[in-house]
Each structure stands twice: as structure tokens, then as C-alpha cells.
Computed example of a mutant assay.
Amino acid sequence: MFRMKELHKAVTPGDIRGEALIDMSVGCSIHHLLPVSEYFKEITVLEFSDACIKDLEDWVKKGDDAFDWSHTSKFMKELQATDKVYCDEVLMFPMKELHKAVTPGDIRGEVLMDMSVGCSIHHLLAVSEYFKEITVLEFSDACIKDLENWVKKGDDAFDLSHTSKFMTELQGTSDTWEEKEEKLRKKIKQILKCDFTKENPTDPVVLPKADCVLSLYVQDIIAKDHETYINNLKKVSRMLKPGGHLLLFGVFNATFYTIGEDKFHILKYNEEFMRKAFTIAGFVIKHLEVQESQMRNENVNVGHVFFIKALKIKEAEV
């Protein structure tokens, strides 16, 4: 299972593919080929014994006494299904909703401020053309380093082209995905560390108020309780110009997510609390899109994912 999971993660970005794959592995087995086979046109298997050659040939020919590897095939199918759910809800849902949100043309301006989970650009691709510059706030030094490396086109930078290609198709513009990435790189003017335990999250840097703030799932993770969530939302409001928009993605009735063997907290709340929090923070909700989540397994538990388009109409309550 370890090998299947790691190979699946390795090939998912799409940079490993080609005409021929050569396999040289221990024993007669196919489990490690399942995650990678779709990325190559043909496979040559090198075995180290006649017995292994006979057993594998028997499996390929569906011989009566061939090994039954169906348990690994079933596991691979479940793994890919989980990955599709993650892709749909964490990548595609935000890109589609942001594209719909900005298309009417009422969301635009000088500065977009982004505060989102991890090192990612997919959500920025949908909105970047409507702003002259982008300030990205990250919550870890590692994410800052990774994003700076992507902006500078470092040799070991993450390959995020799969999201760029999807966004190009969704928008239907004449730009190629490479041109879209290049335009985004030029608009990212600052990448700063932020900490919402501070009154000014970007301390010691004092940023001018933004025309729009984009926040992807991060508020649910950094808030330890409902009071902290409301206080953090007030801080976001103070970073935004009056009449500016907040585009926020979150999750209802979630409890946890895991990375490796470690389990992490997600703040649990419902729509009623969320609406109350936005009112206190000085926002009026212009649009709310809610989608039932399929991310319920040993790695994550989420009730619904949602997107909010909100307008700042007053300063947050004290």
C-alpha cells in the first residue's frame, strides 16, 4: 500500500509520462504498476527468474491458476476515487465559483490580497486579470519558499500546469496556459508571512487596504473556537477597503483532516453561525454556494464546502 500511495502521488502532477515504462521489481506483482500504467503507452517487465516470468505471463493471459491481484486493484480504484473527490472540491470547485463570481465585472481593482491554504495558484488564476497586483499572505516559511520558487521558475518549482490548463479551458480565452501563468507571476508583487494571533497579521509590515480579499479554507483551520473565528474575520475586514469584496471558501460541520500520521483540527460550525460572524465583521453576503462534501474518510471529515461572495458595508463591530 505504501508503494501504491507514493507512486500515485508521484505521477498525479502529470510530469511523469511517455512512450515506454521499464519495470524491474521483486517477485511477480502488479500492484506497483497500477498507479502508473495509464501514463505510458507500453510496459516492459524485466523479471529475475523463470518462475516469475511464468506467473506474470499466466496473469496477463488470465490463466485458470493465475494469481488473484484483485485486492490491490480495488485499493487502487478507491485511492483514485478519493483523489478525484479532493480534486473536485479543493481545486475545481473554487476555480469554477471564482470564475462565475468575477465574470459580471463588479469585482476588480488595484490590489487583491490572498490568504489561503498551502502553496497554490489555482484560485488566483480565476481572478488575477481583474487586479493590477496581488499580495499573497502565507502561514509558513516553507509555503513562502515554494511560491517564490514558482514565481521565479526555479528548477525544482512545483508543476501547477494542470490547474492552469483547466482554467484556460474554463475561461475560453485566446491565452495559452503558459501565458496565463506568466501574467500571474508578474502580478504577484509581495509574498509575506502572516500570523492571525497578532492584531496586525502582517506585523511589522503595514499593508494598505485591499480592494478584494480572497481566502481559501484557511480560516477554518487557524481558528481554535467560534470567538477566534469572528475576531479573525474582523481582522480580515480591517484589511479591506469599504465597498471591497471578500471571496471566502470554507467548510460546514467539519471535524478533522490528516497529513501523514498526524491529525489536525478543523473548526466545526454551521451556516447560522457563519452568517452571524459575517454580520459582526461588517459584511453583507451577496452570494452563498453550498455543496455537499464527499470527503468523509479516515483522512478527513467534512459536511459541506461553501463559497461566499461578501461586500464590506461598514467597519467591524468592536
Score class of each variant (00 low, 15 high):
residue 12 T to F: 09
residue 23 D to V: 10
residue 174 S to H: 15
residue 241 K to E: 04
residue 75 F to C: 09
residue 12 T to Y: 10
residue 235 K to A: 11
residue 128 S to L: 00
residue 172 G to W: 07
residue 217 Y to K: 09
residue 136 V to F: 04
residue 248 L to T: 06
residue 165 K to F: 05
residue 301 N to G: 05
residue 264 F to N: 07
residue 5 K to T: 06
residue 283 F to C: 10
residue 75 F to Y: 13
residue 206 V to W: 09
residue 92 M to W: 05
residue 275 R to T: 14
residue 69 W to G: 03
residue 7 L to Y: 11
residue 315 E to A: 06
residue 127 V to T: 04
residue 258 T to W: 04
residue 276 K to W: 03
residue 116 S to I: 01
residue 286 K to L: 13
residue 171 Q to E: 13
residue 142 A to P: 00
residue 311 L to D: 13
residue 123 H to R: 10
residue 314 K to H: 14
residue 143 C to N: 11
residue 178 E to R: 03
residue 234 K to C: 15
residue 137 L to H: 01
residue 121 I to Q: 01
residue 167 M to Q: 08
residue 184 L to S: 00
residue 85 V to P: 07
residue 170 L to S: 10
residue 17 R to F: 08
residue 155 D to C: 05
residue 176 T to A: 00
residue 227 E to H: 10
residue 213 V to I: 11
residue 46 L to W: 02
residue 313 I to E: 15
residue 173 T to L: 03
residue 60 V to P: 09
residue 241 K to T: 03
residue 241 K to D: 04
residue 244 G to I: 04
residue 266 I to G: 04
residue 75 F to W: 06
residue 311 L to T: 10
residue 271 E to I: 06
residue 129 E to W: 00
residue 185 R to S: 00
residue 241 K to Q: 09
residue 135 T to S: 01
residue 80 Q to G: 04
residue 224 K to N: 11
residue 26 V to L: 12
residue 128 S to I: 00
residue 51 A to C: 11
residue 230 I to V: 15
residue 41 K to G: 12
residue 67 F to Y: 06
residue 43 I to Y: 01
residue 105 G to E: 10
residue 4 M to V: 12
residue 226 H to Y: 09
residue 127 V to R: 00
residue 23 D to Y: 06
residue 288 L to A: 12
residue 80 Q to W: 08
residue 101 A to P: 06
residue 128 S to G: 00
residue 143 C to V: 10
residue 299 N to D: 12
residue 244 G to E: 06
residue 71 H to R: 13
residue 100 K to T: 08
residue 39 Y to E: 15
residue 94 P to W: 05
residue 92 M to A: 02
residue 30 I to Q: 07
residue 278 F to G: 02
residue 111 V to M: 02
residue 48 F to M: 13
residue 258 T to S: 11
residue 127 V to N: 01
residue 216 L to M: 10
residue 130 Y to Q: 12
residue 235 K to C: 07
residue 221 I to E: 02
residue 278 F to T: 02
residue 161 S to C: 01
residue 109 G to A: 04
residue 73 S to D: 03
residue 57 E to F: 02
residue 171 Q to L: 13
residue 27 G to T: 14
residue 56 L to M: 11
residue 95 M to L: 03
residue 311 L to W: 07
residue 120 S to F: 05
residue 200 N to S: 08
residue 301 N to A: 07
residue 258 T to I: 01
residue 3 R to P: 06
residue 51 A to V: 15
residue 310 A to I: 12
residue 23 D to P: 06
residue 241 K to C: 05
residue 271 E to W: 04
residue 308 I to P: 00
residue 205 V to I: 12
residue 34 L to W: 13
residue 94 P to F: 08
residue 184 L to R: 00
residue 51 A to K: 14
residue 64 D to R: 13
residue 308 I to R: 00
